[in-house]
Amino acid sequence: MLTAGPTPPVQPDEWEFSVETEKGQTSRWSWDEMHALGVDDIEIDIHCVTHWSRLGMNWRGVSLDKIFAQVTTSSDYVMAHSYGGYTTNIPLDELLDGRAWIAFEADGRPLTAEHGGPARLLVPHLYFWKSAKWVRGLRMMEREQPGFWESNGYSIHGDPWKEERYW
C-alpha cells in the first residue's frame, strides 16, 4: 500500500474535485455533482511497482472523459494533486478514451481512507503510484513535470508492460 504520509481525513460531504487549466480557469465538482456525471462499473487489472498485481478487480467511478468534456485546455500534461500534498504527473491522452477514472468503490465497497477514499484516481494501465489516493484535483501543464515519486527516483511515465519503474 503506497502511503507517502499521514492518511488525510476527508469526508464525502467536504470532498471537492477541481481541474485548473493553464489559463487559471478552475472547474469544480462536489461529491454529488461528480456522481451525477455518471458512474461506470469497471473490471480491470492493477499493477503495483512493488511487484504485485491484482487481476479482475471491480471498481466504480466516473470516467475522466466525462470530466474533460467540460474542460477546455490545450495542455498535454496533467499533475494530479491529493489531499495531504501528494502529486503525480500523467500525460493527458493517457487519462482519456476510457482509460482513467475518479474511483469511489472497489470490490463492492466504498473506498476506505487507507485505500485512498473517499475518492482516488484510477489509471490501471500505469503503475499504481499514478493512481493517486485522496485525489482532489488536476492541474494542466504545458510541459511535463515530475510529481512526488517521479522526482525521487521513479519513472516519469510508469508503464508496467515496459517495466518503467525507475529513471
Binding site: 500500500m1 503506497l2 525521487n152
Partner: peptide
C-alpha cells in the same frame, strides 16, 4: 518517517 512501499519518506 513513513516507510512507504515505494520508498522511505521523512517528514
Amino acid at each position: 518517517v513513513y516507510p512507504d512501499a515505494a520508498g522511505w519518506v521523512a517528514r
